[in-house]
Amino acid sequence: MTLPDTISGLLGIDGVVGTVIGAFLGAALIGTIMLANAALAGPWAKRKITAAFTDRIAINKLGPLGLGHILPDAVRLLSKELIVPEGVDRPAWDIAPIIMVFSALLGFAVIPMGSGIHLADPSVGLIFAFAVASIASVSLVMAGYSSNNKYSFLGGLRAVAQNLAYEIPLILTGLSVVLFAGSLQMSEIVAAQQETLALGPIGIPAWFGLVNPFAFVLFLVANVAEVGRNPFDIPEAPTEIVAGFQTEYSSVYFVLLYLGEFVHIFLGGALIATIFLGGPAAPIAALSVVPGFIWFLIKIWGVFLFTQWLRSALPRVRIDQLIEIGWKGMLVLSIANLFLTAVIVGVLPS
């Protein structure tokens, strides 16, 4: 049962009206959860994690562990003047930040978060998630092209080049999982990972990340490039092209872009959790008392932590090196992975 049905059932409204109200309320709930996560990640967790990696303390004055900084930071960012540069391509420039957040949030519609929080479960769920996540590239190009700034323009071009190079390996690797699960539906993919593999005396969960670690690593790497984090933060590259596509944005628009990036990282995390880490399932049966939603949050925050770790540890590669890694390395490996998986899946039952 999906979230809208649960809500309409609780409210006791049947029919189309119930579905619509349930869907709206469910979407609002999921949007709020993810924005709250991003709000925690952007102004607070990111700083604390980076500080831990670089031997610093970071924010600690307001509230426990400096958590109280989130609110003043939000007020500060939102109360800044919105500077609209002369010569920007107005509708595109305004729409780009909105698309950014929108595309990332939309992807969560098909993610099963456990504890019954699952907005929709279409039979092409995985394809839908990949499709809406890629809309973000459109917003990067719009932002870069409409800003009428050369740095933004370079950033936008880099974003396209990068997304082209990494989206294909990302999806191909995702497809190898589909071969295992035999379905594109998210709930099916999660269900396919619920068994326990007996590895001698110990049983491990049949998560696809453990069944096919090669695909898991490929997907992780492609995902880092997809969300534009070190060592692949080429579209922003502060020491090279100032801030890339977001150079000219300030105030609310900047917040939207920034927030969009974090939601995007979480969407990447959610996809990894769903197709490689058993979705909301607990790693061992004994821990199933903890609600699935908590496990889901732990997993997406784990991926977030991973991206922050990379950011603090790895140098940024150069644009030509990035493209080379994408086309010559990742693409080949992901195709090889897909074929191998197909062969194994085809041979194993017989």
């Binding site: 990696f53 670089t54 070190n230 933060d233 020491t239 950011r311 603090s312 140098p315």
Partner: peptide, 8 residues
Amino acid sequence: DIYGDFTA
């Protein structure tokens, strides 16, 4: 300059 971020 190389890492692009204030790292360790």
